[in-house]
Design a binder for these strands. Structure first.
Lengths: 131, 131, 131, 131
DNA sequence: GTGGTCTAGACCACC
DNA sequence: GTGGTCTAGACCACG
């Protein structure tokens, strides 16, 4: 399965689950009409309480990403792909913007920011090669 | 005054205050030996609970950024500037790294990330010009 | 066939099937002594799980609307028409009462309620004319 | 307090709580900027689990009716009144429409429906007088 | 088997 | 004191 969570990183578990489902939809790993794993199944895989998965799924329903098929499971809605992609975009744009605004506010020049940015690309790239 | 807080952005108020004090020190807007505003004064300015300011100051003391001068107030310590600058660096590096890790995880290529990055620089630059 | 179901409207499928059978009996579209469609046949038509149709039929038997004819199928009972009509009446009365109680509770006057009521008649009337 | 729930009527408790808060906002019994009762307090009054109240409040936040004031409580948002009134309207309209559509579907004429409708007004009016 | 709701009780950060 | 999150375990309706 494509989902994994980290109970240490400060982000709520149900939130991590939501994001990963959204990313899976955005990348069409799960497609409209497909069923997501059942609450109990996913909870078992992640060794997380079923309520936590249920909450993630519930909120995805309220965002019209999932819809219930009574007695059967939850399926990805037709319009979900588009919405998940937009979400991903705006989420990342938002975070990039905030980190850069903060950088500027703390007195760094654009060039210094660019430098840190490229340095981090280098680091992540290197780590990926080792893996 | 150089501090302002936003109770809506999810970051704890005392944390926002800490950061801004640190940034002010890093950029030498407040210098070692200077007094920071009193708890009550700053709380009044920000219309924030005095406990919140007190907590920010308390934690800044435990990080050896501020030190109490009995009967007078809190002053910036001699080594604070260096420490605040390092803090700022590592904080930003951390955030840049996390946003890029997330971008990669969501399936974007380095070039797409770079593109969003530069686009945001452009946007912020433009806004600055208008202001 | 006279039955159709909507898996999105929150009402249980077996319940929708029950109601529609009852309405068909109340309006004498199916008469006492007639057989209702077989479980498999109706399930096929509605593209619904046979268990669901079976449950609807089972409950209709317990309400003495249908009775089994061994080796043949289920037929409408003699007293069914009367019972279905009463059912329909009381069901609708119940719903009308509940919606109006709720309207009052939310602070609307009788006249405002009447107005909404007549407006909806107008809307439905208009739609019927177009069809 | 203005809220009361009925664990027997089939509607989820958290849903009943949501509606009543909305109605209270729509009728300006609670105004923008006011705090709603704390989770624990309301739970105590209704003799309901705090989680249930928390869930109602959480969903009201996602509908932008409430917003958290960290460490203080939940307050009614500025735009809440308008939204709650629209909600109430559309909820009732929806229910009136559905009950009438069902009435028609079951073969009643508009006049018969009107008759039942007025009869119910009469009944509720009478009951109110007795109270 | 599926999801939905509710209870009970715990821990956390924030004010 | 406040809300937010999570676990554990129960019961229900539906297919």
């Amino acid at each position: 399965m494509f989902v994994h969570v980290d109970s240490q990183n400060g982000i709520a578990l149900y939130e991590q689950i939501m994001r990963q489902i959204k990313f899976a939809v955005a990348s069409e790993a799960i497609q409209p009409g497909n069923l997501v794993p059942s609450v109990r199944e996913l909870a078992g895989e992640l060794t997380v309480n079923p309520n936590t998965v249920a909450r993630a799924y519930r909120e995805l329903q309220s965002e019209d990403i999932l819809q219930p098929i009574r007695g059967t499971g939850l399926e990805v809605t037709p319009g979900a792909v588009k919405r998940c992609r937009e979400d991903r975009q705006s989420l990342l744009r938002e975070r990039i913007r905030s980190v850069m605004a903060e950088s500027r506010q703390s007195g760094l020049s654009w060039d210094e920011i660019r430098e840190m940015f490229e340095a981090e690309i280098g680091r992540l790239e290197a780590r990926k090669d080792r893996t």
